[in-house]
Amino acid sequence: MSSPNPSDTNLTRTTTVQETMPAQKASAAQRVVPRMDTSPLHGLWALTVRDLRKWYTNPYQLLISLIQPIVWLGIFGKALNFTSFISASGATVAQQQQILLSTFGTTSYFSFLSVGMLASIILFTAAFSGMSVVFDRRFGFLNKALSTPVSRGAVVVSKVLQSGIRALIQSGMVLLIAVVLGMDTSAFSVLGILGAFTLLFLMGFALSSLFVTLALRSSDWQTQMAIINLLNLPLLFASNALFPTKIMPAWLQDVVKLNPVSYAIDGARQLLLGSPGTNSLVVDFGVITIFAVVLTSVGVVMSWKLLSK
């Protein structure tokens, strides 16, 4: 590692310095600097688009993410045939319909489960949003972003936003698949669909904030996987995604009431299936909005602290 020829380098250096000292070229790197946008939101959309582009230019990722809900709907949803359970008891068709309606809020368990699956794919997409923070930290991109004047909050919000947008598009696809597989569309309306997806987007936003915040300090994906596994299934099972709350034991019902996922699903079932619902739509929207605002704010505040060491 020694200098090959120190006197040589010495000579070149003296001559070059002498040659160039007087001239000052005003070109590419040092011209009049254009005014930089200093708003706290600058760069937010650029960061969001960067993540979204990775996703939509990789069709495999999109297809794989759709397999899970298809399995749930196509196999689990079709296998769990409540109509035949009940008809085995000898009830009349009218009675069967009545039992299903009072239990699920609809006569089709498949339709009931479909709305749960819309929420489920959002939950899973949100859970992995933290992973992209981990990889950005790992591959140095996070440090690059942090060395620019982009606001720390924008780094967090862009992750949340991209995850929310992805979740929304994926759940739209799940809805199409569900309809193809036999979901009841009789209660569909434009307003209802818009309302349901607003709820689902807010839920995705809230959950992504939670997972992104948990990942802010982490640089290893194993920990992140553990967090995802720890939170994901409890959030799914302790909600009304797969079964109605009222058939659960009392202690579990209390947990389900605390789980924000239940509120998004409850509202979406009212809007898409015309089910009676546990809460009024106002309560569902209110809880999800508060949940989203609080968790995003926590994420932004934590980013000021956790993204600088």
Partner: peptide, 17 residues
């Protein structure tokens, strides 16, 4: 996953240029 040019433009966006 981005082109060289897109990478530089992203940097520029982060500076608010």
């Amino acid at each position: 996953d981005m082109t060289g040019l897109a990478n530089i433009l992203l940097c520029a966006d982060l500076y608010g240029l």
